[in-house]
Design a protein around this nucleic acid. Structure first.
Lengths: 217, 217
DNA sequence: GCATTTCGATACAAATATGTATTGAGTTGG
DNA sequence: CCAACTCAATACATATTTGTATCGAAATGC
């Protein structure tokens, strides 16, 4: 259909994306300082020329990767919440678990976000950027929780920000445990436990036999 | 009192400790790969000669630092639990908060432990070492909790391992938040909230006015 | 279709980090 | 008090890594 000769050379944007792909792997596997240009490029079959032609510095690349990762996470969460909220009659328990399931749960994701966090703590310039982006994620969670709680008011609305942070913290913590000792801790166990705690409307739920309904995560 | 001439040269062990001090700072501030021999030595006024004379490699130094940090944490926690358990009549709430308060809560500590964690995830050789050491910390927490629960049985004993991990995860998560946006989140807020959740023996506690008794952390 | 521009690969130069070797001060044992 | 030894500082050689400059292929516009 194209009257022009078929492209044999990828566009600038495509190469950029490929570099970002390589950077994702390399930063996850070896960390910010540990990842080298060579390492990043090898993974996607490009030369350092493409690297230096696409990004002015390592920091710029790191920022770009962070933004891409967060953008994808954001749309993923928004989609999941919209989907879950659209189906009526969902209980808070089910929704929370569905929501949590939509959060990335793989090795590279964890390693990367940990690396991002450390970088942010060490570089004030990125700290605010990071906090702002993470604020959006928290807002999505809070919004979803707020919608849930219109039907299921077992949690005080004032605690929402706190709960959202709690969910994030526990998710990351349990992801670390799961990666460190695979099989030792079930992937969603901690979060399930936390949700049970929060949604317990009486003491009996806390002590109930939690094995009766094993999660299939 | 010493018949020998006063030492003018520090012992090997002392130098080793100083290198570890420098390494603690450097690894916390710049990460494993980011920290250089020069960087580590400068902080404690030693030369790279002392460094290379004390440690065969960077990994060896990192391991040694990890062990020292964990050892100190372990004795700190053991002391805290022993102390808290010795005074009779302590409620679970008070004890948990005292225990949590004994856990390190400073920037370097967080950055270091995060770095250790990442290193462990990336190097299988350290993973088991790390998991074993962290298991001891968890055991201390579980033991303390078990002692508490003899008097205050609002939590099922079978959930102890899960709860211990939850406490650790939330602690680390809130420490990160606190460092990223100082003042935005009170240092112990998330943990207090979690403890409230766990010890709520009826739904009213969850929804109670938590500002009535602000924690002085 | 040709000139111009863009992009990515290769080659080069500079900076930085690590480990080894050497040296001199300080310590220990006879 | 002297000889042997230990330790940390300095100097050196090697290896990586990064950034720049150059070159050729490919796309675009006239």
């Amino acid at each position: 259909m194209s009257r022009r000769p078929a492209r044999t050379r990828p566009t600038r944007a495509q190469t950029r994306e490929r570099i970002l792909d390589g950077a994702l792997e390399a930063f996850a596997e070896r960390g910010f300082h540990g990842a080298t240009q060579e390492d990043i490029c090898e993974r996607v079959g490009l030369s350092r020329g493409a690297y230096n032609s696409s990004f002015r510095s390592k920091d710029e690349l790191f920022f770009a990767l962070y933004d891409r990762v967060i953008e994808r996470l954001q749309s993923r969460l928004e989609e999941a919440t919209a989907c879950a909220l659209s189906m009526p009659g969902s209980t808070a328990d089910n929704f929370l678990k569905a929501f949590i399931a939509s959060y990335p749960f793989d090795r590279d994701w964890y390693l990367l976000q940990a690396e991002f966090g450390l970088y942010a703590l060490r570089h004030p310039a990125m700290a605010s950027h990071y906090a702002e982006r993470q604020g959006r994620i928290l807002a999505i969670i809070e919004g979803a929780l707020a919608d849930i709680l219109r039907e299921d008011a077992r949690i005080a609305a004032r605690d929402l920000p706190c709960i959202a942070r709690l969910i994030l913290a526990v998710h990351e913590g349990s992801m670390f445990q799961g990666l460190l000792e695979p099989g030792k801790v079930a992937s969603g166990e901690l979060l399930d436990f936390l949700v049970d705690l929060m949604l317990a409307d009486a003491g009996d739920v806390i002590r109930r036999d939690r094995d009766g309904s094993p999660s299939q995560t």
